[in-house]
């Protein structure tokens, strides 16, 4: 299990390094390497999650495992999105994000929020939250690349990032698709979480407010796109705000698990 975790981490790190090299213009061949390494890393990661599941630490057994699972999902969703588009530059943002999620989950102690603490509702809540988080993470990675490329193009710097990146419109539509997909999942997750914590009789916690902010940001994004044609730079910024809030909620959970 530890070996698989280390192997996954190393492969992701290599993949991130090659994609950075590509984006920085060191070598165009580096893109090929990162594109080849990623499915391999994903396979090893799959094995790692499978091994943890067999050992009883399956994805919905705790917040910690769910976050680790989100890292795997993020890469999986990206690989699917990549089937139909050329997204070499996005790898440089997706893989480090997955790596951070993975390591953050790992560094949190197993804690007491084990299988006994979570009911069915709690499990649905954290698993959907993991899925939503993964999809939003991809939307954010795409949005960040969009902003960087857009800024270069506006400044009429046509080299590097713009040449190696993906067309702005493609990125914009991909980020939108992700938010469209992730939002209902995230919504159901929040409702489950609210009902669950009400049943447990737990009091108000600050992360509930942050979760509301995340939800509102994504809701506003979807509504504004339809009604006011919000897209491009503004949409990218709002996506990042929403994801940051969602990430803060997750951080609060992990922190609490670590402190408890």
């Amino acid at each position: 299990m530890d070996f698989l975790f280390a192997a996954t981490a190393v492969l992701y790190a290599l993949c991130a390094a090659t994609s950075f090299a590509y984006l920085a213009g060191v070598s165009d061949k580096a893109a090929l390497w990162s594109r080849r390494l990623l499915p391999l890393a994903f396979l090893v990661h799959t094995a790692e999650i499978g091994a943890r599941g067999v050992a009883g630490l399956h994805p919905v057994s705790s917040v910690r495992e769910a976050v680790g699972f989100a890292a795997w999902l993020l890469v999986g969703v990206f690989l699917l999105a990549q089937l139909r588009r050329r997204l070499d530059a996005v790898i440089a943002f997706v893989v480090p994000a997955a790596l951070v999620l993975m390591v953050a989950a790992r560094m949190t102690p197993v804690g007491d929020t084990g299988i006994s603490g979570l009911g069915v509702l709690g499990r649905i809540h954290i698993s959907l939250a993991a899925v939503g988080l993964a999809i939003f993470a991809l939307a954010t990675a795409v949005a960040v690349l969009y902003l960087l490329e857009e800024r270069q193009l506006k400044r009429k710097r046509i080299g590097g990032m713009v040449r190696r990146g993906t067309a702005l419109d493609t990125l914009d539509r991909l980020a939108h698709r992700c938010v469209q997909l992730g939002f209902p999942i995230f919504t159901v997750s929040i409702i489950c979480g609210a009902v669950w914590s009400a049943r447990l009789g737990a009091g108000f916690r600050p992360e509930y407010a942050i979760a509301a902010v995340a939800w509102a940001a994504f809701a506003a994004l979807l509504v504004a796109r339809v009604t006011a044609g919000w897209r491009g730079r503004r949409a990218a910024l709002l996506t990042i705000v929403g994801f940051a809030a969602a990430l803060a909620v997750m951080g609060a959970y992990l922190l609490r698990a670590a402190l408890d």
Binding site: D28, E149, L153, I158, R163, G165, A167, L168, D169, T170
Partner: peptide, 22 residues
């Protein structure tokens, strides 16, 4: 990469349009 990068004004225009729209 000898043939990379548009080398005339009109092909640069097309190239840039593709950076925006795909």
């Amino acid at each position: 990469s000898i043939a990379r990068g548009a080398a005339s004004v009109s092909s640069v225009a097309v190239d840039l349009a593709q950076r925006v729209f795909g």
